[in-house]
Design a protein around this nucleic acid. Structure first.
Length: 553
RNA sequence: GCGCCCGUAGCUCAGCCCGGAUAGAGCAACGGACUUCUAAUCCGUAGGCCACAGGUUCGAAUCCUGUCGGGCGCGCCA
Protein backbone atom coordinates (compact mmCIF):
# COMPACT_ATOMS: atom_id res chain seq x y z
CA UNK A 1 0.00 0.00 0.00
CA UNK A 2 1.13 3.53 -0.67
CA UNK A 3 1.71 5.05 2.74
CA UNK A 4 2.85 8.44 1.62
CA UNK A 5 0.38 10.01 -0.76
CA UNK A 6 2.19 13.31 -0.85
CA UNK A 7 5.37 11.64 -2.04
CA UNK A 8 3.38 9.71 -4.62
CA UNK A 9 1.75 12.85 -5.93
CA UNK A 10 5.11 14.62 -6.14
CA UNK A 11 6.65 11.70 -7.99
CA UNK A 12 3.76 11.75 -10.39
CA UNK A 13 4.17 15.46 -11.10
CA UNK A 14 7.87 15.03 -11.77
CA UNK A 15 7.13 12.11 -14.02
CA UNK A 16 4.56 14.12 -16.00
CA UNK A 17 6.98 17.00 -16.38
CA UNK A 18 9.64 14.63 -17.67
CA UNK A 19 7.13 13.10 -20.07
CA UNK A 20 6.22 16.53 -21.29
CA UNK A 21 9.86 17.29 -22.04
CA UNK A 22 10.34 13.99 -23.82
CA UNK A 23 7.27 14.56 -25.93
CA UNK A 24 8.48 18.01 -26.93
CA UNK A 25 11.85 16.59 -27.91
CA UNK A 26 10.20 13.77 -29.86
CA UNK A 27 8.03 16.23 -31.73
CA UNK A 28 11.04 18.32 -32.57
CA UNK A 29 9.98 21.35 -30.58
CA UNK A 30 12.96 21.08 -28.32
CA UNK A 31 16.55 19.90 -28.48
CA UNK A 32 17.97 18.24 -25.43
CA UNK A 33 20.70 15.66 -25.00
CA UNK A 34 19.05 14.23 -21.92
CA UNK A 35 16.20 14.83 -19.52
CA UNK A 36 17.74 16.17 -16.33
CA UNK A 37 16.59 15.64 -12.80
CA UNK A 38 13.50 17.71 -12.16
CA UNK A 39 12.91 19.39 -8.83
CA UNK A 40 9.60 20.65 -7.57
CA UNK A 41 8.95 22.63 -4.44
CA UNK A 42 6.04 23.91 -2.44
CA UNK A 43 6.15 27.66 -3.02
CA UNK A 44 6.15 30.08 -0.18
CA UNK A 45 3.36 32.10 -1.72
CA UNK A 46 -0.01 30.43 -2.00
CA UNK A 47 -0.78 32.36 -5.17
CA UNK A 48 2.02 30.42 -6.79
CA UNK A 49 0.05 27.23 -6.55
CA UNK A 50 0.62 23.95 -4.74
CA UNK A 51 3.89 23.17 -6.45
CA UNK A 52 6.37 25.02 -8.60
CA UNK A 53 9.30 23.96 -10.70
CA UNK A 54 12.28 25.91 -11.95
CA UNK A 55 13.00 23.37 -14.69
CA UNK A 56 12.53 25.92 -17.48
CA UNK A 57 15.04 28.24 -15.82
CA UNK A 58 17.55 25.46 -15.39
CA UNK A 59 17.19 24.17 -18.93
CA UNK A 60 16.83 27.40 -20.86
CA UNK A 61 20.54 27.76 -21.49
CA UNK A 62 21.01 24.23 -22.74
CA UNK A 63 17.94 24.37 -24.93
CA UNK A 64 18.87 27.71 -26.43
CA UNK A 65 15.54 29.24 -25.51
CA UNK A 66 14.50 31.87 -23.07
CA UNK A 67 12.95 30.39 -19.92
CA UNK A 68 9.43 31.55 -20.56
CA UNK A 69 9.41 30.14 -24.09
CA UNK A 70 10.62 26.83 -22.76
CA UNK A 71 8.02 26.86 -20.01
CA UNK A 72 5.41 27.44 -22.68
CA UNK A 73 6.52 24.32 -24.55
CA UNK A 74 6.47 22.23 -21.38
CA UNK A 75 3.00 23.39 -20.51
CA UNK A 76 1.70 22.71 -24.03
CA UNK A 77 2.81 19.12 -23.76
CA UNK A 78 1.79 18.61 -20.18
CA UNK A 79 -1.05 16.19 -19.52
CA UNK A 80 -2.32 14.93 -16.24
CA UNK A 81 -5.43 14.15 -14.30
CA UNK A 82 -4.28 15.45 -10.98
CA UNK A 83 -3.48 19.02 -11.96
CA UNK A 84 -6.18 21.61 -12.09
CA UNK A 85 -4.15 24.50 -13.38
CA UNK A 86 -0.69 25.00 -14.81
CA UNK A 87 0.82 28.38 -15.53
CA UNK A 88 3.98 30.32 -16.20
CA UNK A 89 5.04 32.93 -13.70
CA UNK A 90 7.84 35.34 -13.03
CA UNK A 91 11.06 34.68 -14.90
CA UNK A 92 9.93 31.24 -16.03
CA UNK A 93 8.63 29.26 -13.10
CA UNK A 94 5.92 26.74 -13.81
CA UNK A 95 3.24 26.79 -11.15
CA UNK A 96 0.96 23.84 -10.62
CA UNK A 97 -2.32 23.86 -8.81
CA UNK A 98 -3.60 20.43 -7.90
CA UNK A 99 -7.12 19.11 -7.74
CA UNK A 100 -8.25 18.31 -4.21
CA UNK A 101 -8.96 14.63 -4.83
CA UNK A 102 -5.70 13.39 -3.39
CA UNK A 103 -6.27 15.28 -0.17
CA UNK A 104 -9.61 13.53 0.29
CA UNK A 105 -8.03 10.19 -0.52
CA UNK A 106 -5.44 10.91 2.12
CA UNK A 107 -8.18 11.26 4.74
CA UNK A 108 -9.24 7.73 3.93
CA UNK A 109 -5.66 6.63 4.21
CA UNK A 110 -5.42 8.15 7.70
CA UNK A 111 -8.63 6.42 8.68
CA UNK A 112 -7.37 3.13 7.32
CA UNK A 113 -3.89 3.25 8.85
CA UNK A 114 -4.89 4.77 12.18
CA UNK A 115 -1.96 4.73 14.57
CA UNK A 116 0.28 3.58 11.72
CA UNK A 117 -0.33 6.68 9.61
CA UNK A 118 3.03 8.42 9.33
CA UNK A 119 5.01 5.23 9.37
CA UNK A 120 7.11 4.89 6.25
CA UNK A 121 9.55 2.41 4.81
CA UNK A 122 12.57 4.59 4.19
CA UNK A 123 14.71 2.49 6.53
CA UNK A 124 13.96 -0.78 4.77
CA UNK A 125 14.33 -2.69 7.99
CA UNK A 126 17.99 -1.83 8.44
CA UNK A 127 19.32 -2.53 11.91
CA UNK A 128 20.20 0.62 13.80
CA UNK A 129 21.39 1.02 17.33
CA UNK A 130 20.93 4.30 19.13
CA UNK A 131 23.17 4.66 22.16
CA UNK A 132 22.36 7.60 24.40
CA UNK A 133 22.56 9.04 27.90
CA UNK A 134 25.28 6.56 29.00
CA UNK A 135 26.02 8.75 32.02
CA UNK A 136 28.38 7.48 34.70
CA UNK A 137 26.45 5.80 37.52
CA UNK A 138 28.16 8.03 40.06
CA UNK A 139 25.29 10.39 40.69
CA UNK A 140 21.76 11.20 39.62
CA UNK A 141 21.12 12.42 36.09
CA UNK A 142 21.23 16.17 35.96
CA UNK A 143 19.79 18.64 33.55
CA UNK A 144 22.87 18.39 31.33
CA UNK A 145 21.84 14.84 30.48
CA UNK A 146 18.23 15.65 29.75
CA UNK A 147 18.48 16.98 26.26
CA UNK A 148 20.55 14.09 25.01
CA UNK A 149 18.13 11.70 26.68
CA UNK A 150 15.12 13.08 24.85
CA UNK A 151 16.94 13.56 21.58
CA UNK A 152 18.10 9.96 21.68
CA UNK A 153 14.73 8.62 22.66
CA UNK A 154 12.81 10.56 20.02
CA UNK A 155 15.39 9.93 17.33
CA UNK A 156 15.03 6.23 18.03
CA UNK A 157 11.25 6.49 17.85
CA UNK A 158 11.41 8.41 14.59
CA UNK A 159 13.82 5.95 13.03
CA UNK A 160 11.52 3.12 14.04
CA UNK A 161 8.60 4.95 12.44
CA UNK A 162 10.69 5.43 9.33
CA UNK A 163 11.11 1.71 8.95
CA UNK A 164 14.38 1.04 10.72
CA UNK A 165 14.85 -1.84 13.11
CA UNK A 166 15.93 0.14 16.15
CA UNK A 167 17.56 -0.80 19.42
CA UNK A 168 18.10 1.62 22.29
CA UNK A 169 21.18 1.08 24.41
CA UNK A 170 22.69 2.60 27.54
CA UNK A 171 26.42 2.08 28.10
CA UNK A 172 27.16 1.97 31.80
CA UNK A 173 30.63 3.18 32.72
CA UNK A 174 30.78 0.98 35.76
CA UNK A 175 34.50 0.33 35.63
CA UNK A 176 37.38 2.67 36.14
CA UNK A 177 38.50 5.47 38.29
CA UNK A 178 35.22 7.25 38.84
CA UNK A 179 33.80 4.16 40.52
CA UNK A 180 36.68 4.17 42.98
CA UNK A 181 35.98 7.77 43.75
CA UNK A 182 32.34 6.94 44.31
CA UNK A 183 33.37 4.18 46.71
CA UNK A 184 35.71 6.49 48.55
CA UNK A 185 33.15 9.28 48.75
CA UNK A 186 30.58 6.93 50.17
CA UNK A 187 32.95 5.46 52.72
CA UNK A 188 34.00 8.89 53.92
CA UNK A 189 30.41 9.94 54.47
CA UNK A 190 29.77 6.68 56.26
CA UNK A 191 32.68 7.34 58.57
CA UNK A 192 31.38 10.83 59.09
CA UNK A 193 28.03 9.43 60.18
CA UNK A 194 29.82 7.29 62.72
CA UNK A 195 31.12 10.47 64.25
CA UNK A 196 34.61 10.43 62.84
CA UNK A 197 36.40 13.50 61.67
CA UNK A 198 36.88 13.26 57.95
CA UNK A 199 38.83 15.24 55.45
CA UNK A 200 37.34 15.56 51.99
CA UNK A 201 39.87 15.27 49.17
CA UNK A 202 39.64 17.54 46.13
CA UNK A 203 38.02 15.24 43.63
CA UNK A 204 35.37 13.70 45.85
CA UNK A 205 31.69 13.52 44.84
CA UNK A 206 30.23 16.12 47.11
CA UNK A 207 26.54 15.81 46.27
CA UNK A 208 23.98 15.24 49.00
CA UNK A 209 23.01 11.92 47.44
CA UNK A 210 26.28 10.41 48.66
CA UNK A 211 25.29 11.17 52.23
CA UNK A 212 21.94 9.48 51.67
CA UNK A 213 23.64 6.35 50.43
CA UNK A 214 25.99 6.42 53.39
CA UNK A 215 23.02 6.74 55.73
CA UNK A 216 21.43 3.66 54.18
CA UNK A 217 24.66 1.79 54.61
CA UNK A 218 24.76 2.74 58.23
CA UNK A 219 21.18 1.63 58.68
CA UNK A 220 22.07 -1.71 57.17
CA UNK A 221 25.50 -2.34 58.64
CA UNK A 222 25.59 -0.20 61.72
CA UNK A 223 29.26 0.16 62.58
CA UNK A 224 30.10 -3.33 61.30
CA UNK A 225 31.72 -2.14 58.11
CA UNK A 226 34.61 -0.83 60.12
CA UNK A 227 35.55 -4.29 61.28
CA UNK A 228 36.41 -5.29 57.73
CA UNK A 229 39.58 -4.68 55.79
CA UNK A 230 39.66 -1.34 54.02
CA UNK A 231 39.60 -2.83 50.50
CA UNK A 232 36.54 -4.77 51.51
CA UNK A 233 34.89 -1.69 52.95
CA UNK A 234 35.49 0.13 49.72
CA UNK A 235 34.20 -2.81 47.73
CA UNK A 236 30.96 -2.86 49.69
CA UNK A 237 30.55 0.87 49.37
CA UNK A 238 31.23 0.74 45.64
CA UNK A 239 28.70 -1.95 44.90
CA UNK A 240 26.07 -0.53 47.16
CA UNK A 241 26.40 2.98 45.76
CA UNK A 242 26.60 1.71 42.21
CA UNK A 243 23.44 -0.37 42.39
CA UNK A 244 21.68 2.46 44.11
CA UNK A 245 22.67 5.02 41.48
CA UNK A 246 21.84 2.71 38.60
CA UNK A 247 18.36 2.12 39.98
CA UNK A 248 18.01 5.83 40.49
CA UNK A 249 19.00 6.59 36.90
CA UNK A 250 16.72 3.91 35.57
CA UNK A 251 13.81 5.24 37.55
CA UNK A 252 14.39 8.86 36.53
CA UNK A 253 14.53 7.87 32.88
CA UNK A 254 11.44 5.68 33.12
CA UNK A 255 9.54 8.54 34.72
CA UNK A 256 10.63 10.63 31.77
CA UNK A 257 9.18 8.07 29.39
CA UNK A 258 12.55 6.70 28.37
CA UNK A 259 13.32 3.03 28.36
CA UNK A 260 16.18 1.03 26.94
CA UNK A 261 16.27 -2.31 25.20
CA UNK A 262 19.72 -2.97 26.53
CA UNK A 263 21.91 -1.82 29.41
CA UNK A 264 25.49 -2.61 28.54
CA UNK A 265 27.94 -2.87 31.41
CA UNK A 266 31.50 -1.77 30.77
CA UNK A 267 32.67 -4.33 33.30
CA UNK A 268 31.80 -7.14 30.92
CA UNK A 269 34.58 -5.86 28.69
CA UNK A 270 37.26 -6.13 31.35
CA UNK A 271 39.74 -7.57 30.81
CA UNK A 272 39.18 -10.18 28.09
CA UNK A 273 37.20 -8.26 25.50
CA UNK A 274 39.54 -5.31 25.77
CA UNK A 275 42.61 -7.47 25.38
CA UNK A 276 41.07 -9.21 22.40
CA UNK A 277 40.10 -5.95 20.74
CA UNK A 278 43.57 -4.50 21.23
CA UNK A 279 45.12 -7.74 19.99
CA UNK A 280 42.97 -7.56 16.92
CA UNK A 281 44.15 -4.03 16.20
CA UNK A 282 47.71 -5.07 16.87
CA UNK A 283 47.41 -7.86 14.31
CA UNK A 284 46.31 -5.33 11.77
CA UNK A 285 49.36 -3.26 12.59
CA UNK A 286 47.61 -0.32 14.21
CA UNK A 287 49.13 -0.71 17.67
CA UNK A 288 52.66 0.26 18.68
CA UNK A 289 54.59 0.63 21.90
CA UNK A 290 56.18 3.82 23.04
CA UNK A 291 57.39 4.93 26.46
CA UNK A 292 56.02 1.74 27.95
CA UNK A 293 52.49 2.47 26.78
CA UNK A 294 50.50 0.98 23.90
CA UNK A 295 49.27 3.40 21.29
CA UNK A 296 46.53 3.18 18.68
CA UNK A 297 47.62 4.62 15.35
CA UNK A 298 44.44 6.66 14.86
CA UNK A 299 46.27 9.19 12.69
CA UNK A 300 46.18 6.56 9.94
CA UNK A 301 42.47 7.27 9.78
CA UNK A 302 42.44 11.02 10.00
CA UNK A 303 42.70 11.65 13.74
CA UNK A 304 44.88 14.53 15.01
CA UNK A 305 47.18 12.37 17.08
CA UNK A 306 47.67 8.77 18.08
CA UNK A 307 45.99 7.66 21.27
CA UNK A 308 47.12 5.66 24.25
CA UNK A 309 45.08 2.53 24.85
CA UNK A 310 47.17 0.80 27.53
CA UNK A 311 48.92 3.10 29.96
CA UNK A 312 52.48 2.56 31.08
CA UNK A 313 51.17 1.16 34.37
CA UNK A 314 49.39 -1.55 32.40
CA UNK A 315 45.83 -0.32 32.93
CA UNK A 316 43.42 0.35 30.09
CA UNK A 317 42.33 3.83 29.10
CA UNK A 318 38.74 4.81 28.64
CA UNK A 319 39.35 4.62 24.91
CA UNK A 320 40.45 0.99 25.19
CA UNK A 321 37.12 0.07 26.71
CA UNK A 322 35.34 2.08 24.06
CA UNK A 323 37.25 0.27 21.35
CA UNK A 324 36.14 -3.07 22.74
CA UNK A 325 32.62 -1.79 23.20
CA UNK A 326 32.31 -0.57 19.63
CA UNK A 327 33.83 -3.75 18.26
CA UNK A 328 31.18 -5.62 20.20
CA UNK A 329 28.48 -3.43 18.70
CA UNK A 330 29.83 -3.94 15.20
CA UNK A 331 29.88 -7.68 15.73
CA UNK A 332 26.26 -7.57 16.77
CA UNK A 333 25.47 -6.82 13.14
CA UNK A 334 24.07 -3.31 13.17
CA UNK A 335 24.02 -1.51 9.84
CA UNK A 336 24.35 1.77 11.65
CA UNK A 337 25.55 2.82 15.07
CA UNK A 338 24.23 6.15 16.23
CA UNK A 339 25.73 7.71 19.35
CA UNK A 340 24.19 10.75 20.97
CA UNK A 341 26.88 12.87 22.59
CA UNK A 342 26.99 16.21 24.30
CA UNK A 343 28.93 18.93 22.50
CA UNK A 344 31.66 18.69 25.11
CA UNK A 345 32.58 15.26 23.72
CA UNK A 346 32.60 16.10 20.03
CA UNK A 347 36.41 15.99 19.92
CA UNK A 348 36.13 12.27 20.43
CA UNK A 349 34.46 11.61 17.08
CA UNK A 350 37.52 11.34 14.82
CA UNK A 351 39.24 8.77 17.03
CA UNK A 352 36.10 6.65 17.31
CA UNK A 353 35.55 6.71 13.58
CA UNK A 354 39.20 5.76 13.24
CA UNK A 355 38.46 2.75 15.42
CA UNK A 356 35.54 1.75 13.22
CA UNK A 357 37.65 2.05 10.11
CA UNK A 358 40.56 0.16 11.66
CA UNK A 359 38.23 -2.76 12.20
CA UNK A 360 37.47 -2.72 8.50
CA UNK A 361 34.11 -1.01 8.50
CA UNK A 362 33.05 2.14 6.72
CA UNK A 363 33.72 5.00 9.12
CA UNK A 364 30.21 6.28 8.48
CA UNK A 365 28.87 3.16 10.13
CA UNK A 366 29.30 5.16 13.29
CA UNK A 367 27.34 8.34 13.30
CA UNK A 368 27.41 10.78 16.18
CA UNK A 369 24.58 13.15 16.89
CA UNK A 370 26.23 16.05 18.67
CA UNK A 371 23.77 17.77 20.95
CA UNK A 372 24.68 21.33 21.87
CA UNK A 373 24.64 22.58 25.44
CA UNK A 374 21.61 23.66 27.42
CA UNK A 375 21.48 26.80 29.49
CA UNK A 376 18.95 26.56 32.28
CA UNK A 377 17.22 29.87 32.95
CA UNK A 378 14.71 31.13 35.42
CA UNK A 379 12.91 34.26 34.33
CA UNK A 380 15.64 34.92 31.81
CA UNK A 381 18.42 34.58 34.37
CA UNK A 382 21.07 31.92 34.07
CA UNK A 383 21.04 29.31 36.79
CA UNK A 384 24.54 28.69 38.07
CA UNK A 385 25.59 25.08 38.10
CA UNK A 386 28.69 23.51 39.41
CA UNK A 387 29.13 19.79 39.40
CA UNK A 388 32.15 20.04 41.61
CA UNK A 389 30.24 21.77 44.39
CA UNK A 390 27.40 19.33 43.85
CA UNK A 391 25.01 22.19 43.15
CA UNK A 392 23.67 20.94 39.83
CA UNK A 393 19.97 20.76 39.09
CA UNK A 394 18.78 17.22 38.57
CA UNK A 395 16.78 16.05 35.60
CA UNK A 396 14.12 14.81 37.96
CA UNK A 397 13.74 18.20 39.68
CA UNK A 398 13.23 19.98 36.38
CA UNK A 399 10.77 17.40 35.13
CA UNK A 400 8.76 17.55 38.31
CA UNK A 401 8.67 21.29 38.18
CA UNK A 402 7.66 21.80 34.55
CA UNK A 403 6.06 18.44 33.78
CA UNK A 404 7.46 15.78 31.48
CA UNK A 405 5.42 16.78 28.44
CA UNK A 406 6.69 20.35 28.48
CA UNK A 407 10.22 19.24 29.32
CA UNK A 408 10.34 16.77 26.44
CA UNK A 409 8.95 19.32 24.03
CA UNK A 410 11.47 21.97 25.06
CA UNK A 411 14.45 19.66 24.73
CA UNK A 412 13.63 18.78 21.14
CA UNK A 413 12.08 21.94 19.83
CA UNK A 414 15.37 23.29 18.48
CA UNK A 415 17.89 21.87 16.08
CA UNK A 416 20.40 19.70 17.93
CA UNK A 417 23.06 21.94 16.36
CA UNK A 418 21.77 24.96 18.21
CA UNK A 419 22.50 25.85 21.74
CA UNK A 420 19.32 25.69 23.82
CA UNK A 421 17.96 28.18 26.30
CA UNK A 422 15.57 26.41 28.64
CA UNK A 423 13.60 28.80 30.78
CA UNK A 424 11.87 27.03 33.63
CA UNK A 425 9.25 29.70 34.06
CA UNK A 426 8.35 29.70 30.37
CA UNK A 427 8.22 25.91 30.20
CA UNK A 428 5.98 25.86 33.24
CA UNK A 429 3.59 28.46 31.97
CA UNK A 430 0.30 27.01 30.84
CA UNK A 431 -0.47 29.63 28.27
CA UNK A 432 -0.14 30.57 24.66
CA UNK A 433 3.54 31.23 25.14
CA UNK A 434 4.01 27.53 25.64
CA UNK A 435 3.91 25.60 22.37
CA UNK A 436 3.42 22.21 23.96
CA UNK A 437 0.07 23.21 25.41
CA UNK A 438 -0.89 24.84 22.15
CA UNK A 439 -0.48 21.51 20.38
CA UNK A 440 -2.15 19.49 23.10
CA UNK A 441 -5.01 21.96 23.23
CA UNK A 442 -5.77 21.31 19.57
CA UNK A 443 -6.08 17.62 20.36
CA UNK A 444 -8.32 18.24 23.37
CA UNK A 445 -10.50 20.58 21.36
CA UNK A 446 -11.10 17.92 18.76
CA UNK A 447 -12.29 15.54 21.42
CA UNK A 448 -14.68 18.18 22.61
CA UNK A 449 -16.07 18.55 19.09
CA UNK A 450 -16.47 14.82 18.70
CA UNK A 451 -18.19 14.60 22.09
CA UNK A 452 -20.62 17.28 21.06
CA UNK A 453 -21.47 15.75 17.70
CA UNK A 454 -24.93 14.31 17.13
CA UNK A 455 -23.96 12.82 13.76
CA UNK A 456 -21.33 10.30 12.82
CA UNK A 457 -18.40 11.07 10.57
CA UNK A 458 -18.77 10.10 6.96
CA UNK A 459 -16.51 10.03 3.91
CA UNK A 460 -19.45 10.28 1.51
CA UNK A 461 -19.20 13.99 0.76
CA UNK A 462 -15.61 14.93 1.33
CA UNK A 463 -15.67 17.20 -1.71
CA UNK A 464 -17.68 19.61 0.41
CA UNK A 465 -14.42 20.41 2.18
CA UNK A 466 -13.32 23.39 0.11
CA UNK A 467 -12.88 26.24 2.56
CA UNK A 468 -9.29 27.57 2.47
CA UNK A 469 -8.90 26.65 6.13
CA UNK A 470 -10.06 23.13 5.35
CA UNK A 471 -7.67 22.81 2.44
CA UNK A 472 -4.78 24.06 4.57
CA UNK A 473 -5.59 21.50 7.23
CA UNK A 474 -5.91 18.72 4.66
CA UNK A 475 -2.51 19.58 3.21
CA UNK A 476 -0.95 19.68 6.63
CA UNK A 477 -2.36 16.25 7.45
CA UNK A 478 -0.85 14.88 4.26
CA UNK A 479 2.60 16.02 5.27
CA UNK A 480 3.25 13.73 8.21
CA UNK A 481 4.89 10.85 6.27
CA UNK A 482 7.27 13.30 4.61
CA UNK A 483 8.07 14.95 7.93
CA UNK A 484 8.86 11.60 9.50
CA UNK A 485 11.14 10.77 6.60
CA UNK A 486 12.91 14.10 6.84
CA UNK A 487 13.36 13.90 10.60
CA UNK A 488 14.70 10.38 10.37
CA UNK A 489 17.12 10.99 7.53
CA UNK A 490 18.42 14.26 8.96
CA UNK A 491 18.45 12.89 12.54
CA UNK A 492 16.69 16.07 13.59
CA UNK A 493 13.67 15.57 15.83
CA UNK A 494 12.86 19.27 15.89
CA UNK A 495 11.32 19.02 12.43
CA UNK A 496 8.53 17.06 14.03
CA UNK A 497 7.91 19.54 16.84
CA UNK A 498 7.74 22.27 14.24
CA UNK A 499 5.33 20.15 12.24
CA UNK A 500 3.17 19.41 15.28
CA UNK A 501 2.97 23.12 15.94
CA UNK A 502 2.07 23.95 12.34
CA UNK A 503 -0.57 21.24 12.31
CA UNK A 504 -2.08 22.64 15.50
CA UNK A 505 -2.10 26.11 13.91
CA UNK A 506 -3.89 24.78 10.85
CA UNK A 507 -6.44 23.11 13.08
CA UNK A 508 -7.05 26.12 15.34
CA UNK A 509 -7.47 28.28 12.29
CA UNK A 510 -9.94 25.81 10.81
CA UNK A 511 -11.78 25.70 14.11
CA UNK A 512 -12.28 29.43 14.11
CA UNK A 513 -13.39 29.51 10.49
CA UNK A 514 -15.51 26.43 10.10
CA UNK A 515 -18.11 25.14 12.47
CA UNK A 516 -18.12 21.37 12.52
CA UNK A 517 -21.42 20.56 14.15
CA UNK A 518 -23.64 22.59 11.83
CA UNK A 519 -27.16 22.14 10.53
CA UNK A 520 -25.93 21.10 7.11
CA UNK A 521 -25.82 17.39 7.76
CA UNK A 522 -23.58 16.36 4.87
CA UNK A 523 -21.08 19.09 5.60
CA UNK A 524 -21.07 18.27 9.30
CA UNK A 525 -20.37 14.62 8.58
CA UNK A 526 -17.55 15.45 6.20
CA UNK A 527 -16.05 17.84 8.74
CA UNK A 528 -16.32 15.25 11.46
CA UNK A 529 -14.37 12.94 9.22
CA UNK A 530 -11.73 15.62 8.70
CA UNK A 531 -11.53 16.46 12.37
CA UNK A 532 -11.20 12.84 13.34
CA UNK A 533 -8.31 12.52 10.92
CA UNK A 534 -6.71 15.59 12.49
CA UNK A 535 -7.14 13.98 15.89
CA UNK A 536 -5.40 10.85 14.65
CA UNK A 537 -2.48 12.72 13.13
CA UNK A 538 -1.96 14.95 16.16
CA UNK A 539 -2.01 11.89 18.35
CA UNK A 540 0.47 10.09 16.12
CA UNK A 541 2.95 12.92 16.09
CA UNK A 542 2.67 13.53 19.83
CA UNK A 543 3.16 9.83 20.45
CA UNK A 544 6.31 9.89 18.36
CA UNK A 545 7.59 12.74 20.50
CA UNK A 546 6.66 10.89 23.66
CA UNK A 547 4.23 13.58 24.68
CA UNK A 548 0.74 12.81 25.91
CA UNK A 549 -2.34 13.65 23.84
CA UNK A 550 -4.91 14.69 26.43
CA UNK A 551 -8.63 14.46 25.63
CA UNK A 552 -9.51 17.25 28.03
CA UNK A 553 -7.61 20.29 29.22
C1' G B 1 47.27 27.73 17.46
C1' C B 2 43.88 23.61 15.63
C1' G B 3 38.83 21.24 15.35
C1' C B 4 33.28 21.25 15.82
C1' C B 5 28.67 24.20 16.51
C1' C B 6 26.28 28.93 16.36
C1' G B 7 25.61 34.32 14.36
C1' U B 8 18.50 35.68 10.60
C1' A B 9 12.96 40.93 13.77
C1' G B 10 13.79 43.93 20.66
C1' C B 11 14.18 38.38 22.71
C1' U B 12 14.14 32.84 21.59
C1' C B 13 14.56 30.40 17.10
C1' A B 14 12.84 27.90 11.99
C1' G B 15 14.45 28.17 6.92
C1' C B 16 20.61 26.27 4.89
C1' C B 17 21.05 19.24 3.47
C1' C B 18 18.65 19.99 -2.21
C1' G B 19 20.28 28.01 -4.52
C1' G B 20 14.78 30.65 -6.98
C1' A B 21 9.58 34.73 -6.93
C1' U B 22 7.73 39.65 -1.60
C1' A B 23 12.98 35.83 4.25
C1' G B 24 9.01 32.98 8.40
C1' A B 25 7.11 31.54 13.58
C1' G B 26 6.59 32.23 18.83
C1' C B 27 7.32 35.76 22.78
C1' A B 28 7.21 41.03 23.76
C1' A B 29 4.29 45.80 21.56
C1' C B 30 -0.19 47.72 19.31
C1' G B 31 -5.48 46.99 17.31
C1' G B 32 -9.70 43.78 16.55
C1' A B 33 -13.03 38.81 17.30
C1' C B 34 -16.60 34.99 22.58
C1' U B 35 -25.69 34.79 22.71
C1' U B 36 -21.94 29.86 18.39
C1' C B 37 -18.39 22.68 19.05
C1' U B 38 -12.88 24.66 24.97
C1' A B 39 -10.61 32.55 24.10
C1' A B 40 -4.73 27.60 26.65
C1' U B 41 -7.99 30.08 20.38
C1' C B 42 -8.37 33.20 15.99
C1' C B 43 -7.61 37.71 12.65
C1' G B 44 -4.70 42.06 11.77
C1' U B 45 -0.59 46.08 12.40
C1' A B 46 4.38 47.11 13.32
C1' G B 47 9.29 45.23 13.45
C1' G B 48 15.19 42.61 8.92
C1' C B 49 22.18 45.83 5.21
C1' C B 50 19.92 37.14 7.05
C1' A B 51 27.51 39.19 11.47
C1' C B 52 31.10 41.27 7.71
C1' A B 53 34.04 40.97 3.02
C1' G B 54 34.99 38.54 -1.41
C1' G B 55 33.78 34.50 -4.97
C1' U B 56 30.51 30.99 -7.99
C1' U B 57 25.58 31.74 -10.53
C1' C B 58 20.68 34.37 -14.91
C1' G B 59 19.62 34.22 -9.43
C1' A B 60 22.80 33.41 -2.69
C1' A B 61 20.11 33.60 4.16
C1' U B 62 21.20 28.85 1.44
C1' C B 63 27.21 26.78 -2.09
C1' C B 64 32.91 28.18 -1.69
C1' U B 65 37.01 31.22 0.67
C1' G B 66 38.48 34.63 4.29
C1' U B 67 37.55 37.91 8.62
C1' C B 68 35.09 39.12 13.18
C1' G B 69 32.03 37.70 17.46
C1' G B 70 29.93 33.74 20.95
C1' G B 71 29.83 28.48 22.85
C1' C B 72 32.41 23.78 23.30
C1' G B 73 36.68 20.83 22.90
C1' C B 74 41.91 19.72 22.01
C1' G B 75 45.09 14.33 28.80
C1' C B 76 49.03 7.80 29.72
C1' C B 77 41.00 11.92 32.91
C1' A B 78 36.45 9.52 32.69
Amino acid sequence: MQKNLQAAVEAELINYLAESLKKAVYEGKLELAEIPEINIEIPREKEHGDYATNIALVLAGKAGLNPRQLAEIIIDNFETEIVEEISIAGPGFINLKLKNDWLYKNLNLIKELGDDYGRVEAGQGKKVQVEFVSANPTGPLHVGHSRGAVVGDVTAAILAAAGYDVEREYYINDAGNQMDILAESTLLRYQELLGEDIELPENIYAGAYVKEIAAELKAEYGADLKTKAETEQLEICREYAYQKMLKNIERDLAEFGIEFDNWFSERTLHPDKIQQAIASLREKGYIYEQEEALWFKSTEFGDDKDRVVIKSDGSATYLAADIAYHLDKLERGFDKLINVWGADHHGYIPRMQAVIEAFGYDRETLEVIVVQMVTLLRNGKKMPMSKRAGSFVTMRDVNQEVGTDAARYYYIMRSTDSHLDFDLELAKEQSSSNPVYYVQYAHARIHSILDNADLTASADNLDLLVDPAEIDLLKMLARLPEEVTLSAESRQPHHLTTYAYDLATAFHSFYNNCRVNTDDQNLAQARLYLVDAARQVLKNVLTLLGISAPEKM
